[in-house]
Nucleic acid binder design. Structure first.
Lengths: 373, 373
DNA sequence: CGTCTAGTGTTAAGCGCATAGATTCAGACA
DNA sequence: TGTCTGAATCTATGCGCTTAACACTAGACG
């Protein structure tokens, strides 16, 4: 690779000082038209591109927005995602891949692992950044570990994060160095902005649908209570039950509990005991899909024996059998909104963090017992 | 935001020179254990994070891989993607968005615009980078314009690009400054590596399926010939026809040609003249979906009146009605392979660029006349 | 004992750019 | 002609880090 020309080279070629070269690019108005042309001409001839690192160092900003995911993959597996995600270690050799590019195509083909909720939000973020001509630095890492995200924070002006289970502390720390917006939990961090959705209302709407349209009166919730989003959805369900004078479960069915090394222990035992409720509201589409697998395995028919609902509105729920009644989040808008918030914080430092909650919308499909067109 | 601590602060706190601080992080073995601990302790206490820009400037590398798309969105619209993509200008206001987050939910909901081919490849790229603990700089911009990509090249060590129609020259230029790998065309650039798929074989397989399984003997190709991938697919189709002694069209049906401001002029007139062939092999799933819309509008039934095939194997083709018989590209593998190639080039400078071709696989669904399970 | 070596730590010189402040220069004006 | 002003350009410094080169110390070894 050729040595890259610098301001010095351009300055020499144009017969000016490096300051003039810099001003030509950063504050063209400050430079006489003729001089400016000469500089641009020289730059063009030399194929000059300003060095991003040097710029970042000199003026203290990078012009880049960061997007970091505390990895949900592992978590997806743990929560009973049907198929294990590809092991994330060891070398990847291109030469070898050509021969079995479809080795685990069952995964690739069935869109069950992509695009997930995160991916659609990320897309909104990218689209909005592209619209504004901004570039994005993307990274991801295990939920507990801060090393990768630290590598990022020093290269971006602001950061959006998908929090993991154990990331609250790290996120709080980051927010002291640069503007941070978190998708969903952990809210309550006073120094972090949040893009949220109306979890309560969403879960409530689904629950009422089961009650009103399908006459179901015994409903339980599948999801880990320790995630605040899930907690809110659980509460939304409970509130709806309450409004209708129905019994309210005092705990969720934790899908991560194992029996014989297999997830959904609680559901399995309910089935075994013949005590499965008529309705199961799940914390996410991923949970619901995992649940469908388990129920199929146990010979329980959905929706005949039990109605199941998801949350998110991912493609996977549309492709499953039966297709998933769910609540769709405005993911693209969420991603765009995050950019909006970050740019605002950059433009007006000192602005306090903001929380914005977006609406969700029910998507009725087959897993609840409806058979839409 | 608090002022960020530097090596100087850490050095002072630990009672050593800045060199020792730097070595502690870069070459721990060079520092006595006790000293190292002291430095790490001080760094921890101060919440120190090395500045990425300074590092990049000092040692000439950033540790970041770039991924750039010469924007396909506009192109997708032009080629008759059914729905126009959101206009990409004007401000985006978060405050307002809350009220109509689903304003154009028809788009969001029907996964027709996401994930596309590019998105799945990008995912593979991201996964592989995550696996290696690398961060990615992502950008996109209009096909003719180099300004955004230039902003990127000075911040990354190597770059993968989705070429646009008019990007060959820019890409060639980039490849003189850093390792570049291009997905698909424009190959022929001697300084650029390529990740390719077997377009000929893919299109040939589809064509033979139409011939052998469905007894179709008149087949034409829908796609712009100026893109070399499409050209190869066209040729693959022609070769298959030839092998079976069938007539070979001498040109493709260009979907961008307009009649009354509407795309697919060629197809429209064939229909009007009652000369529509029995088989239409499309350059991509997007083309095929656009075509399905047009045919539906014209009252032509697929697959009864005409068999249609796509290329790529995107979700959209799975959700369309009828679902799309297509060829699936190993997109995740393609993305991973690109990372592999770039890392190799970085590890062994001087290595010549490589071209790697991955296999594709036919996915039979309903648009060809089959009715799989 | 003097010399060498390996192990540690420090000094100092950039990396390429932005920009405050100094300098120069060309009118404007008295 | 002398002075003042504003525009155009330059000089000089620093952003935070890496690293070659050097300095020092404590054995090892002849």
């Amino acid at each position: 690779m050729a040595k890259r020309p610098t301001v010095y080279d351009v300055a020499q070629a144009a017969g000016v000082s490096i300051a003039t070269v810099s001003y030509t690019f950063r504050r063209p108005a400050r430079v006489r038209a003729a001089t400016r042309e000469a500089v641009l001409e020289a730059a063009r001839a030399l194929n000059y591109v300003p060095n991003g690192s040097a710029r970042g160092l000199a003026d203290g900003r990078t012009g880049v927005l960061g997007l970091y995911s505390f990895d949900m993959l592992l978590e997806a597996v743990e929560t009973g995602g049907s198929r294990p995600v590809r092991e994330n270690t060891g070398p990847f050799r291109g030469a070898e891949v050509a021969d079995h590019a479809f080795a685990d195509d069952a995964d690739a083909e069935d869109f069950r692992v992509f695009p997930l909720y995160v991916d659609e939000v990320k897309r909104g973020f990218e689209l909005e950044c592209a619209r504004r001509g901004r570039t994005i630095l993307i990274g991801r890492g295990p939920s507990g570990d801060g090393s990768v995200v630290l590598d990022i924070v020093s290269r971006v002006d602001a950061l959006a994060v998908f929090p993991g289970v154990h990331s609250a502390e790290i996120i709080a720390q980051l927010s002291h160095r640069l503007p941070v917006v978190a998708f969903a939990m952990p809210y309550g961090l006073a120094t972090v902005s949040h893009v949220l959705v109306d979890n309560r209302k969403g879960a409530g709407t689904l629950t009422e649908h089961l009650i009103v349209e399908h006459g179901i009166t015994d409903i339980q919730f599948v999801g880990e209570p320790e995630m605040s989003d899930y907690q809110e959805r659980f509460e939304g369900m409970c509130e709806a039950l309450q409004r209708h004078g129905l019994p309210v479960p005092d705990a969720t069915l934790d899908p991560t509990a194992l029996v014989d090394d297999r997830p959904y222990a609680a559901v399995r035992s309910l089935v075994a005991e013949g005590k499965l409720p008529r309705g199961l509201v799940c914390a996410s589409d991923q949970h619901a899909l995992g649940l469908l697998d388990v129920l199929a395995e146990l010979g329980v028919d959905v929706p005949r024996d039990v109605a199941v609902t998801g949350f998110d509105g991912t493609v996977a729920g549309r492709l499953s059998s039966p297709s998933l009644t769910s609540v769709r989040q405005p993911m693209e808008a969420m991603g765009r909104l995050a950019v909006d918030i970050l740019m605002d914080s950059l433009a007006n430092p000192g602005l306090p963090p903001v929380d914005q909650t977006l609406p969700v919308r029910m998507v009725v499909r087959r897993s609840c017992g409806c058979s839409p067109a």
